[in-house]
């Protein structure tokens, strides 16, 4: 097995930079990949530079910087701030609609805050929303009207939340 020296690693890194690989993460990924290829395929008395040239040429069609360009392109696509699955999406909805009723009921029962009107109001809200939410939660993905496939919540034209179908 060929053993790559520190000088040869510096040589590879310099060459990657000169060929347009500027993202440090990408440099490290390619350096490790090249090193493994050389170590596994080059004989101990093999010609490092010659083999390196063959390896690096197999990485691209026209120029090595294609990899950097593709990476930057993929990294600058719109990103979601939050990825949610169905359960994570429904939990806040249950909290929003049922939370006030449960809170008011507990406060009323314990006598801390006697507010019958609030209990009735939030109770009606819960009465309407609970069955609806349960039906939506238990509806199979493909029939779910609330979360179509690849649903996303947009804000000002930018996607901020993506809701994944149930796993």
């Amino acid at each position: 097995m060929y053993c790559i020296t520190d000088q040869q690693m510096d040589f590879i890194l310099d060459d990657l930079r000169s060929k347009g690989i500027l993202l440090e993460d990408l440099q490290q990924n390619l350096l490790d990949h090249i090193c493994v290829l050389i170590e596994e395929n080059l004989s101990t008395d093999g010609n490092f530079e010659q083999y390196y040239c063959t390896v690096i040429r197999s990485f691209y069609k026209k120029e090595l910087s294609e990899i950097e360009e593709e990476t930057r392109f993929l990294l600058t696509r719109p990103k979601y701030l939050l990825l949610l699955n169905r359960n994570q999406f429904f939990t806040p909805l249950f909290i929003i609609f049922l939370g006030p009723y449960i809170t008011c009921a507990i406060l009323d029962l314990t006598g801390i805050w006697p507010g019958d009107a609030w209990v009735f109001f939030t109770g009606w809200l819960a009465l309407y929303s609970f069955p609806t939410l349960m039906v939506l939660l238990l509806t199979p993905d493909k029939y779910d009207p609330l979360i179509p496939r690849n649903a996303r919540i947009m804000l000002g034209g930018a996607p901020i939340i993506r809701i994944l179908p149930a796993s």
Binding site: F59, Y60, K61, T71, L74, L75, R77
Partner: peptide, 17 residues
């Protein structure tokens, strides 16, 4: 899988969380 396709995809997957 070519290196030119693999690493940009891995970086994108990382950026997407």
């Amino acid at each position: 899988i070519t290196e030119g396709a693999l690493y940009p995809t891995l970086h994108a997957l990382e950026a997407d969380g």
